[in-house]
């Protein structure tokens, strides 16, 4: 962990975001969305949990969770392993029912949001032998849930099909995947797959993106580049992003807010408001110390379940 912290500083991120991702979006977009301003008080949240709880049998995953994500916000959902961060996303998708409280997604019940919701599940990667092009995977985000079978040459006579193709090309360009979108997705790298999947989630112009550990299983330069990409998309497309992460550091500079989950509830606020010794000690009811390295990185120490120890997920890989 120390090695990782020392290897990167805040300056690296800026550099990555410039070098790694060509920022061509604003040029292509005829009507660039206005930069996010603090939402007015009467704006309805994209995602809202109130007094929410999930129990599997006798086990309470979490309870008394009150969180909200406002339009255009980039919010990280943080917390130790096994605390139910992914469960929170699954509740929002309508895949896991709440046992108490209410959840509202885009003003509707979970599972009803449909086209306005983009989702990126936690995964390792596609099978290497999968002989399907990246662009086909992206296209599934546009029409994969429609019954029937794609007809050959539909683009020649269907304006709708042409418009869809244009949007697919646009999102592929947006995530910088033009070079490898025609290659079988099993053959491209993890970071490239992740970019294609972000493109897939974006095809339908969602208002809310739910990302489950999109930086997991990526190497550090890719983590930084994908984090910068997500932030840029959130800003340029005006999409609210709720992103589950186990390490706040790669995304810290982009975040509007963080939501920290514990068993007995959740706290949300800016990074400074939430990730400090006092707030986290209160949330987990155990002494926790948050250290700030000289370059601004945060290290959480104390609880054996705290995020600073989660880097063991990467122990299979040599540290840079």
């Amino acid at each position: 962990m120390r090695a990782r912290l020392l290897a990167m500083n805040a300056g690296d991120f800026e550099q990555q975001s410039v070098v790694g991702i060509p920022s061509t979006v604003s040029r292509q977009n005829p009507t660039p969305p206005s930069p996010p301003s603090p939402p007015p008080a009467d704006v309805r949240p994209m995602l809202e949990f109130s007094q929410a709880a999930v129990r599997f049998g006798y086990r309470t995953v979490w309870s008394d969770v009150n969180v909200s994500v406002m339009p255009g916000e980039f919010v990280a959902i943080l917390g130790p392993n096994g605390v139910g961060k992914s469960t929170l996303i699954k509740v929002a998708l309508g895949l896991v029912p709440l046992s108490a409280g209410t959840a509202t997604v885009l003003g509707a019940e979970p599972g009803q949001a449909g086209r306005d919701l983009g989702y990126l599940p936690q995964r390792r990667s596609f099978d290497q032998g999968l002989r399907v092009r990246g662009i086909d995977v992206v296209r599934l985000g546009a029409d994969g849930d429609r019954w029937g079978t794609p007809l050959p040459f539909a683009r020649r006579w269907s304006a709708q099909s042409r418009a869809q193709q244009e949007r697919i090309d646009e999102v592929i360009e947006m995530v910088g995947a033009g070079q490898y979108a025609e290659r079988p997705i099993g053959e491209v790298s993890g970071g490239e797959q992740q970019r294609l999947l972000i493109a897939q989630a974006l095809v339908r112009r969602p208002k809310l993106l739910l990302l489950d550990e999109p930086l997991d299983s990526l190497d550090l330069p890719n983590q930084a580049a994908v984090a910068a990409l997500i932030s840029r998309i959130s800003r340029d497309e005006g999409v609210a992003v709720a992103m589950v992460a186990h390490d706040v550091n790669p995304i810290m500079s982009y975040l509007d807010r963080v939501i920290y989950i514990g068993q007995g509830g959740a706290v949300s606020g800016t990074v400074e408001q939430v990730i400090n010794s006092e707030t986290l000690s209160r949330l987990y009811d155990t002494p926790i110390e948050v250290l700030r390295a000289s370059d601004g990185r945060l290290v959480v120490v104390g609880d054996p379940e705290a995020p600073s120890h989660h880097s063991d997920r990467h122990s299979g890989r040599p540290l840079p």
């Binding site: 998708l93 599940p121 995977v137 599934l140 994969g144 849930d145």
Partner: peptide, 23 residues
């Protein structure tokens, strides 16, 4: 098969996302 082709392809490639999109 023609009736379910596209969603079946989606569910085959990416079951989690397909399910979240209502397939």
């Amino acid at each position: 098969l023609a009736g379910i082709g596209r969603p079946l392809f989606f569910a085959t490639i990416d079951a989690d996302v397909a399910q979240a999109s209502g397939v």
